[in-house]
Structure formats: structure tokens, C-alpha cells
Design a protein around this nucleic acid. Structure first.
Lengths: 360, 360
DNA sequence: ACCGCTTGCGAGATCGTTCTCGCAAACTTG
DNA sequence: CAAGTTTGCGAGAACGATCTCGCAAGCGGT
């Protein structure tokens, strides 16, 4: 019968209960050093009896590692990206014996800086960061990380010299353009959401985050390859808020010669196309075609299904964890820049203009 | 000039650098006790110079609290529920000075049990749990939680006597039924996804998780109130996997007298309706009406927009954090069972049968 | 000039664990 | 049977912070 104290039972309580010393109790439970089988059994039973639960804090302080990794993400809802990435990271970490401390930055660099500071104070063994689009990144430099490894996901920050896992959006978007041209489209719209823009604009903003830049470059490359002249590449940029997105869509549809197909750089923008086109009675996949980046359940199940450049988000998260754990457990790994292949999933949102008589 | 050691600088290094004792350095930085202004300044400067970052682990061990809460969720993608809830919890926690350790259970009770064990070992100050539908819940009883507070979210576990934050899905669903009947619908389908079912079935499974049970009860109550006879309430149950869902939808549409409207208990099921109806050329909001629980961007922006019972997910998360932090910081709070109101958002997916001539 | 009070600071204990070291008992070996 | 080796276990230090004491110096009041 254990005497109940007012604190959670510690290894000292286990030792008393089993009639051995702290050291022996610890040895028996952790299984290092030499302990007789009888003692191990006695200590185990004692621990069970008093409901002992090891204090991972103390263990971590002694060991110098916490078995915890810090995750700094940018929560967005429409893309089903945040949750897929988060889930895959949490699950992959758990499989390798790590827990995840999560922070959300909402694209705010200052919040990101403080979040990383807090995570480091909590002694995470390493960091996985979806870097925010705004602001600088001194806080991500090795010298400010207390020697703890960092892996970037989804967005490259080239001058940082740190392992990065992204998807090959350049090739994916280029492929999508090629596919559209093959189906007879010859005037292509491209709607890009970007941070740090006021409203919407036709001028390309000076700095795009790497993922969006890749999509833009892929679009341009695909169009050039297919011989689409610049005047038939219609670019619009907007903030990532519904009002700006919808205004950008409306402006594009209001052109004297609107494009037959609209590419969007993310799903928020794609939904704006759905909404604005719907309100004008334009049927997707007939009067207006649509391609977006990132697959999602609704894109697959809608009628018509939306043609997408699918990114292997789960793999993205898993690889990030794999890289990070490798650097944690054997430091000095070479820096890797992993780019995962994307996949064009053709559905019904892109009209085949080769057979149908051109509408509008 | 600080002498660089091979370990992260500690308060001892700061003290040396400033020429004071550990205790004084700690006082100067933490701002308790008495310290002269000059010393505070000197210590601060020393800390800056050597890049001191406090070790939150050591502080937590001494203080007995970590400033960390454990979050145990069930990741799902379609509902935009996981990410909205997670984000709101992470953000609300941060505002109150807490970080979040996140675990995902995938509805597996054993994984949930182990996740909670790990979180407790890591000395979280409290737990927010979306309880899994399967298995028992001894691991959630107060005696097994080491005295740390727990708040349940989204699903009630009545015999646990613990604060719970849910949404009033009963009233929401009842309201939705009432609305549909007012629009002329008189034969109502209800598609329910539930764990622990093999395939799909017409028989109501013995145990439904509280949120789904509330929706079912609300549906039944609304139909009864509106005078819909039992034979015009068509129930189908299925597993939460696409194959079962789609089979259930198909079976319902294959009835001799299919319902004019289908209610679904979640968005996975609603997407299955979209898919199957689409593949049969049935237009949503015309030949088949649809109402689901949980709003999401795609439900709002699709054409037609989907009528939904919207749940205040962000508020759910915030209130859970608020309750938990209250119990952490002043123990002995009364147990609260908070039910947040839902809102019916009528869109175009429910046909108005009063004016239109009945189709099919 | 003496007493009491405030101020500033340092020594040491503490949180709960792991791990090194040393010691005694038991065991092996020629 | 003596000497060396293995085995099992306990004492104590360590991780890095906070906090309780107690001490010495400075201060004002009488």
C-alpha cells in the first residue's frame, strides 16, 4: 500500500516502495546498467502500484534533448494544405518518437520570430518552418538557432543554406499550360495571390515567395514553349482576401477578350473564380476553364471536377521530418534541397476546344 | 567579450560575464526580489552580449508548470474542422501565454491513450481532447490524469464529469429539417457516417458519438414536429470511407421513391452525394437537394452553394482554451457543459418545391 | 554613537531524472 | 584456496533555473 503524498509519485517514491535506491529504481525501469531480474520485477511492480509516471522534463534536462520538434506553420483553410501538412508531420514525428510543438504565424514575420524564440526556449530538438512570405529571415540563421537544426518546407529561402523540402511547382504548372494548349486554349489567364499587395494589379509584384514564383515561372515557360504570344498571357495579381481575389477575377472576365482558361495559383483564388463565374452564369469547364494548384476533396468531387496540379503534401511533411530527425540524430548532414514531383490531374474543368465550336 | 563554450550559455555564464552571482543574475532577469537598477542593466547587457536564452525546461521543473497544453485531435480533411479548431486553439493558447503540443489519433482509442500518456509525461499543464469515437475512456478519468485538468471538445462523454465544449447540433439539424419542410420537402433522406460500422446499413448502430447522435436526434425531432411519418424518413448509415459513403448514397438514390432532399451528417458524406449525384446527371438544388453540417469555403463558393448548418468552430476552440486555462490557473472550477449555437445558412442546394412543379 | 530597518547580494537547496564511480559480495579460475 | 573478475547496488554529482535564507553594508532616527 503506497502512502499517498500530495505530489505526483517520483522515482524516489518508487525506490522507497521497492526498498531500493533511486539509482537502482532508475536502472530497473530504464534498463541500462546491471540489475538483477528479481529487482527489476520488484521495481516494476512498485511503479505500477503507486502509479508512477516518469517526468520527461527531468529526463530531458539530464539528457539534453527533449524528443520534441517545433513546427511553425501558416494556417490557411481553403487549400487543405495546412491540415494535410500538419497531420503528416505530427504522424511522421510520432513514428520516430518525437512530439510536435506547433505554432501558427499567419504570415506575420514578427510572430514567426517570437514563436521560434519560444520554441527554442522550450528546448525543441529541431525546427520545421513554413517560412512566412513577409519580412526578413535573420531569426532563421544558424547562429540564432542555438545549434539546433532547421528544415524549411514549401518555400525556399535561398541565402539560408538550410535543407528545404518543396514541390516542383514550376514543372507542374508548365505541364498544366501545355495540357491546356493541347486542348485548344490559346489565350490564357493567370491569377496570382501574393502577400504585400494592396488590392489587385496587373503589374507583377517585385518579390514573390518561392512557391508562387515557381508557378509564375512555370506558367510563363509553358506559354512561351507553346508559342503563346505575351499579349495572350493575361496576368492579374491580388491580395489573398476574397474581395481582392473576386475583383481580380471580375476584371479578367470583363476584358474585351477574356481568356478561355484561368490558371490560379491557389485554391482561394480558384474558389473566387467559381463564385464570380457562377454569379455570371458562366459554366466552369464550358464557358470558362479553370486549373488550380493543390488538390482537395472538393476539387475532386465537385461537378465538374476541377483540373489541378496536385502536390504530394503528405510526402512533403514526411520528408521534412525525416530530414530533420536525421540532422538531430547525426549532426553534420549535408544540406539537401528536395523537390518533389507534382502531378497534373485532368478533370472536367478544362474545356476541350478542339471539337466544340468556340463559344463567346 | 564572452568566452565561447561549446554549450548554450546559461545563467551562470551571464552571471560570470556581469560579475555577479547566479541568484542575482536570475533576479535581475526575472524581476523578482530586490536588485539595484545598475545591476539589472549590467546583467541585461551581459545576457545580450553572450546571447543568453533561458532554458524553459529548467524553469518549468522548478516552477512545476510548463506553460504547455496538450491537444489531442482527430485529423480529418474534408470538414475544414480539424484545421479551424487547431488554429483557433493554438492562437488562443498563445494569447494566454501557452504553447500547444499536438497529437493526432485518427479515431484510434489506443493511439489516443498513448498520446495522452506521452503528453502527461511531458508535463503539460492541461489537456484539450477531441475524444475518439471508439473504445472506452478510462484513460481520461481524473485519477489517470495526475491531477491535470481536461476539457473535452466537440463530443460529450457523459460519465466523465469534465468540462465540455460542443455545438448545439441537435437544434441546428432540427432547424434545417424545419426549413426543408417549409420549402415543400416531404420525404427526407439522412446519411450518417459512423465509426465501427462495416460498409453501410439501414439499421441505426447501437452507439453513436454524441455529435452525430445529436444530429440524428435533431433530424428525427424536426421530422416528427413537421408531421413527417417515419416511412418518409429514410436513414442510411455508413463507414467514413468513400466507398461506403458512395454506396450509401447510391442505395438511397436507387430507392423506388428516393427522398427529395438528403441531409448528411458531415462533409465527407456531402461530397459523396455531390459525386454520385453528379455522375448520374442529377443537379443539386434541382433534382436532389442537399444539406450538410459544417460550413466550409467550398460549400459557400460552389455553384450551387450548399445549404449548411454552420458551427462556430473558432469559438469552440477559444472557449476550450479559456476553460482549460481557467482550470489550470485556478483549480476547482465548476464543471461546465457549454453548447454553442449553430446557424443554418440557406444557399441554393435546397430546391423550393412550393413553386416549381415537382420533378421526377 | 548606537540601534533598528532597509537594501543588495551570495550560498545553498530544490525540482526529478540519469549516470559515473566505487564498494562489497559473489563467483570464477588455476 | 588465493587472486582476479563479475555482479548488484548505493552515494553523489549533474542538467539550469528559481527561491529561501541569512549576512553585510548603508541608511535614518534619537
Amino acid at each position: 500500500m503506497a502512502e499517498r503524498r500530495n505530489h505526483a509519485p517520483t522515482i524516489v517514491d518508487v525506490a522507497e516502495q521497492a526498498g531500493v535506491s533511486r539509482a537502482t529504481a532508475s536502472r530497473a525501469l530504464s534498463g541500462y546498467g546491471r540489475t538483477s531480474a528479481a529487482t527489476v520485477e520488484r521495481v516494476r511492480r512498485a511503479a505500477d502500484e503507486i502509479g508512477y509516471r516518469p517526468n520527461e522534463l527531468a529526463r530531458a534536462m539530464r539528457a539534453g534533448s527533449t524528443g520534441t520538434i517545433g513546427l511553425v506553420v501558416i494556417a490557411d483553410f481553403t487549400n487543405a494544405f495546412f491540415d494535410r501538412a500538419t497531420k503528416s508531420i505530427v504522424d511522421a514525428a510520432r513514428k520516430r518518437g518525437y512530439q510536435v510543438l506547433i505554432s501558427n504565424t499567419d504570415e506575420d514575420a514578427e510572430v514567426e520570430r517570437r514563436a521560434i524564440e519560444t520554441l527554442l526556449e522550450k528546448q525543441v530538438d529541431g525546427l520545421i518552418v513554413f517560412p512566412s512570405a513577409t519580412g526578413h529571415s535573420e531569426h532563421l540563421e544558424a547562429g540564432n538557432l542555438g545549434g539546433r537544426p532547421l528544415v524549411l518546407v514549401d518555400r525556399r529561402l535561398d541565402d539560408l543554406g538550410v535543407s528545404t523540402v518543396t514541390t516542383d511547382d514550376y514543372t507542374g504548372t508548365r505541364e498544366a499550360v501545355r495540357n491546356a494548349v493541347a486542348l485548344g486554349h490559346s489565350r490564357l489567364g493567370f491569377l496570382v495571390t501574393a502577400a504585400n499587395i494592396a488590392g489587385h494589379t496587373v503589374a507583377r509584384p517585385p518579390a514573390l515567395i518561392s512557391s508562387v514564383r515557381d508557378r509564375a515561372d512555370g506558367f510563363a515557360a509553358g506559354a512561351a514553349e507553346a508559342g503563346i504570344p505575351p499579349e495572350d498571357q493575361v496576368w492579374h495579381f491580388s491580395e489573398d482576401v476574397p474581395e481582392s481575389s473576386e475583383a481580380a477575377v471580375a476584371a479578367m472576365l470583363d476584358l474585351d477578350a477574356p481568356p478561355s482558361i484561368i490558371f490560379t495559383s491557389n485554391n482561394d483564388m480558384a474558389l473566387s473564380v467559381l463564385k464570380v463565374a457562377g454569379s455570371r452564369g458562366l459554366a466552369i469547364g464550358r464557358e470558362v476553364s479553370l486549373v488550380t494548384v493543390d488538390d482537395s476533396p472538393w476539387a475532386a468531387y465537385m461537378v465538374p471536377g476541377i483540373t489541378v496540379v496536385a502536390r504530394p503534401v503528405e510526402q512533403l511533411g514526411e520528408l521534412a521530418v525525416e530530414r530533420l530527425v536525421a540532422e538531430i540524430e547525426s549532426p553534420g548532414q549535408p544540406v539537401e534541397d528536395i523537390q518533389l514531383p507534382t502531378e497534373l490531374i485532368p478533370r472536367a474543368s478544362v474545356a476541350d476546344l478542339r471539337t466544340a465550336s468556340p463559344e463567346r
